[in-house]
Design a binder for these strands. Structure first.
Length: 355
DNA sequence: AAACGCCGCAACCGCCGAGGT
DNA sequence: AACCTCGGCGGTTGCGGCGTT
């Protein structure tokens, strides 16, 4: 206990590495191989520099969407075992994954109402706007939402409860009008057209029939803490976020039919928004990132995060940042949100009443 | 243009276990 | 058995870049 840092011994150099030092270390390792990390810096520093930066097989650049999903899935099983997670992500280091988790994924999970430690869905963390926007665009989810909220009173947020109950009653009282409004909407019309597209349904049959229980995970994740802790809530959420709904919405620049909502309500729409589809959205592109594609990816099948995260840029593994919507969004983001929420709200629906 | 604050990442720190003496 | 060294790991920090005011 309390041992002095190794770098304090012998006056070894600390701090950022210079290109010359990098060259030296690389040349040394190419000659001698890794190990015996005692050069002009402490062994630890040399080893870290090599494993985290100089190693030739390190993959540089942004994490791809698939990598992100893998990290989340593995984290739900392994916890903060970064080295174990890194071992399953070729070219990525534990340090890189750890940093990415702390700076990106963790925040995103929190925004989406998921505890990043337990991966449990927490309504008290969930952004109310997520629920509202999804519920409004998917009337079939209203009752599910109500059920979800009713079944989780321990976590109940009064705003969410009011939201769900009011939306449910709204749907029941004015279901014809409500559905008509949605169907007349351009985007929701495209939803109805796209529902018959087989490529989506082929790999997400478990979501098609909402009466059917989602099959148990067949991977090793089935025994992990994630499923045990989160399945009930996740199921409820997934029911509300059918892949059809997700695939329907896309970025369009047109502002027609857009009814501005309260700023807070549009801060976090729940649909992937690929920049490549801004003018001509296509189902395959959305499908690619929908999170429902991978049949053997257990986490994706259950992850609310997979469903409600909003991707704004193309997931080019090298250049594209994995940008997700948050409350401090840019103008571009807002433009995207605006088009995402191109529907009309029935007059009887009082937004202010929710807020 | 300058000041300020935020964010991301590289590097460091402290602890632990394995292996050697 | 006790001690030491080393490699490995997760947590934390500090600096530089960038955006905002």
């Amino acid at each position: 206990m309390g041992r002095a840092p190794c770098c304090d011994k012998n006056g070894l150099k600390k701090g950022p590495w210079t290109p010359e030092e990098d060259q030296k270390l690389t040349a040394y390792i190419q000659l001698q191989g890794p190990g015996n990390w005692r050069l002009q810096r402490c062994g630890k520093s040399c080893r870290l520099r090599w494993t985290n930066y100089l190693r030739p097989d390190i993959k540089r650049g942004r994490f791809s969407f698939e990598e992100e999903e893998t990290i989340i899935q593995l984290h739900s099983i392994l916890g903060n075992k970064w080295s174990a997670i890194a071992a399953r992500l070729p070219g990525r280091t534990d340090n890189e994954i750890k940093n990415y988790w702390n700076t990106h994924i963790r925040k995103r999970l929190l925004r989406n109402g998921i505890d990043p430690v337990t991966h449990a869905s927490r309504l008290d963390l969930l952004d109310l706007s997520s629920i509202l926007s999804s519920a409004l665009c998917n009337p079939s989810s209203l009752l599910t939402l109500s059920t979800l909220v009713g079944n989780t009173q321990a976590l109940l947020n009064p705003d969410i409860f009011r939201l769900s109950t009011t939306l449910s009653s709204l749907k029941q009282e004015n279901s014809d009008l409500f559905l008509q409004q949605l169907q007349e909407n351009q985007l929701c019309s495209s939803l109805l057209q796209n529902q018959a597209i087989p490529t989506l349904s082929s790999q997400s049959n478990q979501f098609q029939n909402q009466e059917e229980p989602i099959p148990a995970c067949t991977t090793t994740a089935s025994t992990g803490p994630f499923l045990n802790q989160t399945t009930p809530l996740m199921l409820a959420n997934v029911e509300g976020f059918s892949p059809n709904t997700t695939s329907t919405f896309s970025c369009q620049n047109s502002q027609e039919n857009f009814v501005p909502l309260n700023e807070g309500l549009v801060s976090q729409p729940n649909f992937y928004c690929n920049s490549t589809t801004t003018t001509n959205p296509t189902v395959p592109e959305l499908e690619e990132y929908s999170g429902f594609q991978s049949a053997n990816n257990c986490y994706q099948n259950f992850s609310i995060d997979s469903v409600i995260s909003t991707r704004l840029t193309s997931p080019d593994p090298l250049n594209s940042p994995s940008t997700y919507v948050n409350s401090s969004s840019t103008e571009d983001d807002r433009e995207c949100y605006s088009s995402l929420l191109k529907f009309e709200i029935p007059e009887s629906f009082d937004i202010d009443d929710f807020l």
